[in-house]
Computed example of a mutant assay.
Amino acid sequence: MDNEQQRYKELGDFLKTRRVKIMPSQVGLLSGQRRRTPGLRREEVAQLAGISLTWYTWLEQGRPIHVSTPVVESLARVLQLDREERHHLYRLANQPLPADISEARKIVSPALQHMLDSLTHCPALITDQRWNVIAWNKASCTIFGDFDAMSDRDRNIVWAMFTDSKYKQLFVNWDRHAKGMVGRFRSTSGKYIEDFWFAQFIEELKTRSPEFDLWWPLHEIQNNGELYKQLNHPQVGQLDFEISNFDVADHSSLKMAVHVPMPGTDTTEKMASLLRTYGNESGLLLNDSTRRKQ
């Protein structure tokens, strides 16, 4: 067996061993009838990865077929590979390694969270390079919804902006804010062009939002963040904020956005009122429909 044949065999064996480790419930499938073998069936992996069963079967059989980068990334996602396993799959498929994208942090340091919490009347968020909100304070929950109760996808700022109808009511001049966000998100995605997550996310969002589908092909780029934001909150009415954006020290991929009540407005008093409501009733939140069942 030559080196190429060995590589194809290793690829097939690797896929098989990872497939049997994934339970149907881990990918949102019902277990159903008794299964003869553990893990996912071939047809389930093929369907979830968006490839044909015949083609995937050939892969597991070690046949000499070309595997594209999008297929490698889809398989890595379905099989829930960690960073090392994902890189191993890329090597076996003879594809260049993806950009080194750090995993989204689920928990920030206690000191960083304490700093967010100390910004009592200032909604503050920390996002990763994919614009997922990974840390927040109570003030931000009174404005944007209970992040702790959202799914990972709903916690993505871009996704929420274009798929949650409540945001169109919350943002005064939503079109301007949303279109500017598209330009800034395109600038970010260009930095991680080899991360297939962005391609998948963008295609899915285009099918969900006519506005995003219209604006994305314009290739407009923005690098400067917002300086001012006016919101129309359903409980307290108009809120006016100055926006400050910071890089998180020692974590260049993380960004912090702080919404500071504008001087000369009643925004601070309204934030205090919202926080009292949030503390007493778990918040009159923008995204109550996204709460997880306890």
Rank of each mutant, 00 (worst) to 15 (best):
V108C: 01
V108N: 00
V108H: 02
S109I: 10
S109L: 06
S109A: 11
S109Q: 07
P110R: 08
P110Y: 02
P110L: 08
P110S: 09
P110A: 04
P110T: 00
P110E: 02
A111M: 13
A111H: 11
A111Q: 13
A111R: 14
A111W: 09
L112N: 08
L112T: 09
L112C: 08
L112V: 04
L112W: 06
L112D: 01
L112P: 00
Q113D: 11
Q113P: 00
Q113T: 09
Q113S: 10
H114S: 15
H114F: 13
H114C: 14
H114G: 15
M115K: 15
M115G: 07
M115C: 10
M115Y: 13
M115T: 03
M115R: 12
L116A: 09
L116Y: 11
D117F: 08
D117Q: 08
S118V: 02
L119K: 09
L119W: 04
T120W: 04
T120C: 08
T120G: 12
T120V: 13
H121R: 12
H121D: 15
H121T: 15
H121F: 14
H121K: 13
H121Q: 14
H121L: 12
C122D: 06
C122E: 05
P123S: 06
P123H: 06
A124R: 13
A124C: 05
L125S: 09
L125M: 06
L125Q: 04
I126Y: 01
I126K: 00
I126L: 02
I126P: 00
I126T: 05
I126C: 00
I126Q: 00
I126W: 00
T127G: 01
T127Q: 08
T127M: 03
T127E: 04
D128Y: 08
D128C: 09
Q129I: 04
Q129C: 09
Q129Y: 05
Q129W: 00
R130F: 02
R130M: 02
W131Y: 05
W131P: 01
W131M: 09
N132I: 02
N132Y: 07
N132L: 07
N132R: 10
V133E: 00
V133G: 03
V133K: 12
V133A: 07
I134A: 13
I134D: 14
A135L: 03
A135V: 13
A135W: 01
A135F: 01
W136D: 07
W136Q: 06
W136Y: 05
N137P: 02
N137R: 03
K138D: 15
K138T: 15
A139H: 02
A139Q: 04
A139S: 02
A139F: 05
S140I: 14
S140Q: 07
S140L: 03
C141G: 09
C141R: 06
C141Q: 12
C141A: 12
C141K: 07
T142I: 10
T142E: 15
T142R: 06
T142F: 12
T142Q: 14
T142K: 09
T142C: 14
T142S: 15
I143H: 05
I143D: 11
I143Y: 06
I143M: 08
I143W: 03
F144D: 08
F144H: 09
F144W: 09
F144V: 12
F144I: 15
F144R: 10
G145A: 11
G145S: 10
G145V: 03
G145H: 08
G145Q: 10
G145M: 11
G145Y: 10
D146A: 11
D146L: 10
D146T: 03
D146K: 13
D146P: 13
F147V: 01
F147I: 02
F147T: 03
F147L: 07
F147N: 04
